[in-house]
């Protein structure tokens, strides 16, 4: 006879997206989320987990293992990671939640989910070849200066060359798709 807990587990496993682990593995290459044994080292050292109750790297890996793709790619949580790489350095199983999170971001973007400002950075990268454009800076004594007035050389950016090389990748299609971007929801 099955106990209640086991029965619930079967239900959850029935609903899961069985290909998610394979999908993440396709992007990851080496790191296997199935190797994670939930030791919590990543979360206990994570600087974001310190200031955000709703960001727990080990749970993201666990949800990936369970195949909860819909929850993961539609919510904002995977976009909170600041790439400090502490979890990569500390993971005893070489799973690296950071790598899993980046694989999930790629899957989210393929499905059309991406936060507004991160999408803007990508668009600026594609249009200008850099994520920000030259700015006017106000100094301590309230003078407005630019690279030109400071006597610094104007930056040369070979946007054409960069785009030509990037046309071999999926990036142009992704950028086109993200024009009809779907909103990423806040975690409740």
């Amino acid at each position: 006879m099955k106990c209640k807990g086991e029965f619930l587990m079967v239900l959850v496993l029935e609903q899961r997206d069985k290909v998610l682990v394979e999908e993440t593995l396709r992007i990851l290459g080496e790191q296997d989320p199935l190797a994670c044994y939930q030791c919590n080292k990543c979360t206990s050292g994570c600087p974001i987990a310190l200031v955000r109750q709703d960001f727990r790297p080990h749970l993201i890996v666990q949800q990936t293992r369970m195949g909860l793709k819909d929850v993961l790619i539609k919510e904002e949580a995977i976009w909170y990671c600041c790439q400090c790489l502490k979890c990569v350095a500390r993971c005893p199983q070489k799973v690296a939640p950071y790598e899993v999170i980046f694989a999930l971001r790629i899957l989210a973007a393929e499905a059309g989910y991406s936060p507004k400002n991160i999408t803007k950075l990508l668009q600026s990268f594609w249009n200008n070849g850099m994520v920000t454009t030259p700015m006017i800076i106000v100094t301590k004594d309230f003078a407005e200066v630019t690279r030109q007035t400071l006597g610094l050389p104007a930056p040369v950016v070979d946007t054409e060359g960069l785009r030509k090389a990037l046309k071999t990748t999926k990036l142009p299609t992704i950028i086109e798709n993200l024009k009809k971007r779907k909103k990423v929801s806040k975690k409740d």
Binding site: F125, M130, L166
Partner: peptide
Amino acid sequence: EACCGVPAKNFD
């Protein structure tokens, strides 16, 4: 001075 590409890492 083109970008090193890190912002694109989120997407591809």
